[in-house]
Write a protein that binds this DNA or RNA. Structure first.
Length: 257
DNA sequence: GCGACAG
DNA sequence: ATCTTGTCGC
């Protein structure tokens, strides 16, 4: 076969094989980001707020993803799902979505609920090409998404007030691409940006609402715990049970083994 | 050319 | 992300 060098991911969709192709995909999809806010008001009972996250096992080349759904009113868990995949792309700053999204999309499908908002671990519009993983996930699924990251990446911000809820613009030069938001007193801020179908104000309001007791939103904390647990169990299942030397690095390509 | 660099 | 001991504090 000549021509396109695209390959297939675990879900059967085209996936870039090189950094140049990945950047081209971002440039192509970026115009599809919608800025109109379609997220529910924070605290609305009956709405579904989802968190997604992934964990890696580099030695086995496996990524485990988790999706957790919380009720918008009580923040109690109403659904959980996991998925596995071969790591489909190397870590390259600015191309994180190509490493995480196949497994995340799979986990979201298995969730059995359609979230009203998805909170991602990383950035949305706060991205060198304005298309971080939160925006990418939103465009691919049509879901409202926000990005909440733990570090400022390549961006700058002024001082953030000491009180919970205080914030400062996250700047790419003079352009506000997100917000440094303090979710707890005496704790480093988190870095919020728009993913898809949400406003920055709404993204920050949801982040604040979901992060009362801890720095990070409850959605990402739950998803983080779940994908780590899934990865541990996958490792245990291989080591402790089937000792077949030939079958090791080839853990399930997808699904719950 | 040399660092910096979401997770 | 992941590798890793102890330490300070509620």
């Amino acid at each position: 076969m000549s021509g396109s060098a695209h390959t297939s991911d675990a879900r059967g969709a085209a996936w870039p094989a090189t950094e140049a192709e990945a950047r081209a995909v971002q440039e192509q999809l970026r115009p599809r980001v919608e800025l109109a806010d379609r997220a529910p008001a924070p605290g609305t009972p009956g709405t579904v707020l989802a968190g997604v996250d992934v964990a890696y096992d580099d030695t086995h080349d496996v990524v485990a993803a988790a999706a957790v759904a919380l009720d918008g009113g009580t923040h109690e868990v109403v659904a959980r799902a996991t998925a596995y995949a071969r790591v489909p792309f190397p870590y390259v700053p600015g191309l994180l979505a190509f490493r995480e999204l196949p497994a995340v999309l799979d986990a979201l499908e298995r969730l059995g609920r359609v979230p009203d908002l998805v909170v991602c671990d990383g950035y949305g519009l706060a991205h060198p090409r304005r298309f971080g993983l939160a925006s990418h996930l939103g465009v691919l699924t049509g879901l409202a998404t926000v990005g909440v990251a733990k570090t400022p990446f390549v961006f700058r911000h002024g001082p953030v007030g000491a009180a919970r809820g205080d914030s400062a613009p996250l700047l790419d030069g003079t352009e506000e691409v997100g917000r440094a938001l303090r979710t707890r007193e005496g704790v480093r801020p988190v870095f919020v940006s728009v993913g898809h179908r949400v406003s920055l104000d709404s993204a920050c309001a949801h982040t604040l609402s979901l992060a009362r007791r801890y720095r990070l939103p409850e959605t990402t904390r739950r998803a983080d715990a779940l994908c780590r647990e899934a990865l541990r169990e996958a490792a245990t299942r291989q080591t402790g049970e089937s000792r077949s030397p030939g079958e090791e690095g080839r853990a399930a390509a997808t699904g719950r083994p």
